[in-house]
Amino acid sequence: MARASTLVAGIAAVAIGVAAPAGTPYPQVRPGIVLRFPADHGAHPAYRTEWWYVTGWLRTEDEKDLGFQVTFFRTRPPVGTANPSRFAATQVLFAHAALSDPTRRRLLHGERAARQGFGLASARVGDADVAIRDWALRRGADGRWRTTVAAEGFKLALVFDPTQPPMPQGQGGYSRKGPRPDEASYYYSIPHLRVSGTVEHGGRRVRVRGTAWLDREWSSNYLAPQAQGWDWTGLNLDDGSALMAYRIRRKDGGTLWAGGSLRTRDGRTTVFAPGDVVFRPIATWRSPVTGARYPVAQDLTVRVNGVAITRRLMPMFAAQELDARRSGLPVYWEGAVQVPDGRGYLELTGYAAPLAM
């Protein structure tokens, strides 16, 4: 098992941190995309990196709050597609799952990693159906998304019922992440998913209900060389509006790029320019495991129709760091947060070490 973990970590390092050779070019992200569904729910295997990302808040039968994350990553390593070997790692999949329990003030999490094929891992083209062994995230013919994961200390079996249409990010789904036009992703969200299902942890199996946010992104050149990492939040607001905001941080400090969008309950969308988004840390937490210091509480200010609106992001609890080094992926903070008029998640990357993608 240790040897297998070392192999997977090595594949991950190659997939994420090394430029592709000239013989295996990746397609670049360009403006002018027209998102098409259900096809864009499915995999885009030619691109270097892709993810299916679900986060949300759950309420148990005894009215206790929980946070959860289920993420599947697909990456195309710099391996020539002409390689005839069935063992060539032409596609590698990773998955993270986490459960935030405020009564225990700790994050339970687990990981999976495998190369595609051999019945171990798959990411379907044409609609959402991604799996690594017994972990899966799929979209059914009824339009509902379903996930099952079983990690050490917890199990999730959740159904996500869309209540709103997909929300293209950026310009119709083309989302800039840096000063160059190709430092970008294709990106859409599905906010305000209605959640039902079960959670097992602490020796109990309980029914849950809640609200979730799903992000879909794929890219070949996500971050500029001078980028350190990002702060991102997706918020389901109480009035039915949906707010996403992010900033890409520089290695030498400050903000390299920023953006996001607000879609109101009547469907009107405001797309934020880089100057419309400001994250201001108000409290930090230092990880006793990695030593990273995260701004886990922040004031987020966005400009809508010329008016600056500030919301304070407060974590469910501070210790929501996810250490995914065992699966070859980075250390980052992914936590349930509240604002005065809603709930969502905050993601903080590049605080333990510069992020390479």
Rank of each mutant, 00 (worst) to 15 (best):
M1A: 13
G17H: 12
V18E: 14
P21H: 12
A22F: 12
A22W: 11
T24K: 11
R30L: 13
R30E: 13
G32T: 07
I33L: 11
F37K: 03
A39C: 00
H41N: 10
A46L: 11
W51R: 07
T55R: 02
T55G: 06
W57H: 12
D65G: 06
L66Y: 03
A82V: 11
R86Y: 05
F87A: 12
F87G: 01
A95D: 04
A97K: 01
A97N: 01
P102T: 02
R106T: 13
R112G: 09
F118N: 14
F118Y: 15
F118P: 09
G119K: 04
G119T: 03
L120C: 09
R124P: 01
V125L: 05
G126F: 08
A131N: 04
R139A: 08
R139H: 02
R144I: 00
R144K: 12
A151F: 07
P166T: 12
P168V: 05
G173V: 09
G178T: 06
P181I: 10
D182A: 09
A184F: 01
Y188E: 03
S196R: 13
E200F: 06
H201D: 13
H201S: 15
G203R: 08
D215C: 11
W218S: 07
L223N: 10
G229Y: 09
G229T: 10
G229M: 10
D231W: 15
L235D: 07
R247E: 15
I248E: 07
D252F: 02
G253M: 05
G253N: 07
G259T: 05
T264Y: 02
G267I: 08
G275R: 10
I282A: 09
T284K: 06
T284S: 14
V289L: 13
V289H: 12
P295F: 08
A308G: 04
R311T: 12
R312D: 01
E321M: 10
L329Q: 14
L329C: 02
V331L: 09
V331S: 08
V339H: 03
V339S: 07
E347Q: 04
G350A: 09
A352R: 05
